[in-house]
């Protein structure tokens, strides 16, 4: 459905996108993951025809965006990083404008109403966009992308700046849309892609780092567990006990939050679950009640470090002729 082939974009001395190749199958929801400034938006802007590539090409539904831009753009609904809204128009006027702009040939008002219902903006239909809240503006932006029922939807960081409830709503919406459309969802939040996407493409500093099924990527990076434990008791005694638990790699003191308990960051060896031994060790000591235990989410930086080191390991393996 979408093919990106050896795409490179150079801004002056800066290679924003460096030889990136991937493709998206019809009906797939693809997560496009990378830290800020990784080249996500640039890639998507090239794919949607807003920018031109320095080299390489993009095809949407078999149509090259450079050779036949109008036809390719017709296949895409695009929500850029900043929703492209005219603040002085009402939602109705704006969506009608988008409808005309895309040259749609559907029953107009009914089609627009339908899209408004999908993103739940029916109640602000006649209000001026500039006066809407951030969440509503974002949804008007999504409605804009949906107008004309394009087979491909591209969302560039659609949940940035929304409150947690709105984030969940937007994620659910994207999941529903995924039943009918091919979607690229760009984000720098890992749980977001885990929750919604079938496959994840990771880029960092313009380079492709990973292109995997979601499950594979998550297990690949999930080997090491970091736990935050809140334990009551004297710091030195607790540390001594913790360090003796089998499988523990390191323990750091995070600080006192309450009067009598201390938080510890415990890192375990690869692929070892230390939660049970930890519990038994503490209860055996008799006076160190565990009052809180949570897993720590891997940050994107952790993922990159892991992915890059896995790549190196794999590369070394090939050199040694083992694989």
């Amino acid at each position: 459905m979408i093919e990106i082939n050896e795409l490179t974009k150079v801004f002056g001395a800066n290679r924003a996108v460096d030889n990136v190749t991937f493709s998206v199958e019809p009906g797939e929801i693809m997560g496009f993951l990378g830290p800020n400034g990784a080249g996500k938006s640039t890639t998507l802007n090239i794919l949607t025809g807003y920018l031109s590539a320095t080299s390489g090409n993009c095809k949407v539904n078999g149509v090259d965006i450079l050779e036949n831009p109008i036809e390719a753009k017709r296949q895409i609904g695009f929500l850029p990083e900043q929703p492209p809204l005219y603040m002085d128009m009402t939602v109705k006027e704006y969506l009608r404008f988008v409808y005309d702009l895309k040259g749609c040939r559907l029953p107009r008002d009914q089609h627009i109403r339908e899209k408004c219902d999908v993103v739940k903006i029916g109640d602000v239909y006649d209000r001026i966009i500039g006066n809407l809240s951030k969440g509503y503006k974002q949804r008007v932006g999504i409605a804009q992308a949906l107008i004309g029922d394009p087979p491909v939807l591209i969302f560039d960081e659609p949940t940035v700046g929304l409150d947690p409830k709105q984030i969940i709503e937007i994620r659910n919406l994207i999941r529903v849309l995924g039943q009918k459309h091919t979607i690229i969802l760009s984000t720098h939040i890992l749980p977001e892609v885990q929750a919604v996407c079938d496959r994840i493409v990771v880029i960092n500093k313009g380079k492709l780092v990973a292109n995997e099924k979601t499950e594979n990527l998550v297990t690949a990076v999930d080997g090491s567990r970091k736990l935050i434990a809140k334990i009551v008791g004297r710091e030195e005694d607790v540390l001594k006990v913790l360090r003796n638990v089998p499988g523990v790699k390191s323990v750091d003191v995070l600080g006192k939050r309450d009067t009598d308990s201390v938080s510890y960051l415990i890192e375990s060896e690869d692929r070892v679950d230390i939660r049970k031994p930890l519990f038994y060790a503490l209860s055996a000591s008799g006076n160190m009640p565990l009052i809180g235990l949570e897993g720590m989410e891997l940050s994107l930086e952790d993922i990159f470090i892991r992915l890059v080191s896995e790549n190196r390991k794999a590369a070394r393996g090939t050199k040694g002729g083992k694989s």
Binding site: N45, Y50, Q82, Y86, Q144
Partner: peptide, 10 residues
């Protein structure tokens, strides 16, 4: 940034 809408429209 509405330019982005115009430039990515057909």
């Amino acid at each position: 940034k509405t330019e982005q809408l115009l430039m990515t429209a057909p």
